[in-house]
Amino acid sequence: MAHDAHAHADGDHGHHIIPMPVLLKTFGGLIFLTILTVLTATQLDLGAFNVPLALAIACGKATLVIMFFMGLKYDNRVNTLTLVLGILFVLIFISFTLFDTAFRGDIGNVDTIPQEDRTRMEETLQQRDPGRAGLATSPADSLALEQNPLEETPAPAEEPAPETTEPEAAH
């Protein structure tokens, strides 16, 4: 390991001095990529590829900073391992959260009856009771019907209510 060679260099501790031209070129590359990302984001419309392109350029800039400014290219491997493990956990964090949130569907729907059954019940009710008053299967439904009456007879919501339980019981 290069580490052992350093330990023997008494006095001169043997830290790698990153040459000035490397630092200046890194800075130049970073400025170039900044201009590139601004131009591609404002002048080009790649549709679905806008975000991946901007992220790819950002990752390129991050790599330059990490390798040359932070000196990881010349450093102990254990520091690279630390960083890679950290990035791994960030990726797990993002991807597993998206597994949930991106495929969650209608989170506000807490109905115990499956949506298909609910639709079928509504259709049956609609056929039997075109006035829609019988659709009030819960207090919230009655409220919604009162606030948004689609028919002329809003009042008798209570009367047909027992009928609505019938299709459920019939199953």
Binding site: T34, T37, V38, A41, T42, N50, V51, A54, L55, I57, A58, K61, A62, V65, I66
Partner: peptide, 13 residues
């Protein structure tokens, strides 16, 4: 580094 990611995500795309 944080800003390198914040800049395109917030301002550009």
């Amino acid at each position: 580094l944080i800003w390198i990611f914040l800049f395109p995500l917030m301002y550009l795309i």
